[in-house]
Design a protein around this nucleic acid. Structure first.
Lengths: 120, 120
DNA sequence: CTGGATCCAAGACGATACTG
DNA sequence: CAGTATCGTCTTGGATCCAG
């Protein structure tokens, strides 16, 4: 690829330095469950229980903690309705939407190539 | 975002199913160190020791294991030269190069937005 | 110099039970 | 329904030593 390390550093900031913001955010959104939750929210608002079922294999604990992290990062918006029984909805914020616009092509590439990669 | 879940499923395969190839590969390349190693290799061939210094904070164990995984996935090529002292070089394969073409925009987005995200 | 092998700590993660 | 709390497990990852 015709990209110099200097260019990468310039364009990707301090990504190679420990504890820099880029690495922190990268760890959040590229985490095992972060990607899947964000992906599930890409087609719109979801309730807690929907996400729980959508993202196969996630535990309640990890769903809660993943959502809290993404919410703190301003990527996911949480809306709770004062009803009985309770209803809470999660959706991408504008920033989260922007993020997914950049992440979706990558996920699609992986989905296309995955079979050829693992099957060796 | 104007993407339906059905579309995502169609375009991203079985990503929501446990143990599917897409999830496995996703875990490899989106792992804490996988991203950084791939990123470091984006500007060309690197020696072991260079990578060690380049990717700040990585331990020898994690570098070795990350490289072995990426090599097994056909994303990184390892070339060892029968010299004394030994010299080993790592580079992206064509497939790895293709991958980075899709991942770089995402990393750049994160680098741009990271400060605003963490600083809250 | 390039790793492999081993041991150990810390955090991630899962299962379950429980509450507003 | 939407979580929280607690506990126990297990993987991740670091440190160190050693070998080709």
């Amino acid at each position: 690829m015709v990209v110099s390390l200097a260019q990468i550093r310039e364009r990707s900031g301090e990504v190679f330095v420990e504890g820099c913001p880029t690495r922190v955010v990268l760890d959040h959104i590229m985490s095992k469950w972060g990607v899947l939750v964000l992906l599930a929210l890409t087609d719109g608002t979801h309730r807690w229980g929907e996400l729980r079922r959508e993202v196969e294999g996630i535990s309640e604990k990890m769903l809660a903690s993943t959502l809290r992290t993404l919410e703190a990062d301003g990527l996911v918006a949480r809306t709770s309705y004062p009803e009985v029984p309770p209803r809470v909805e999660y959706a991408l914020t504008d920033r989260g939407d922007d993020l997914m616009r950049h992440m979706l092509p990558l996920v699609e590439w992986v989905a296309r190539e995955a079979d050829g990669i693992v099957a060796r």
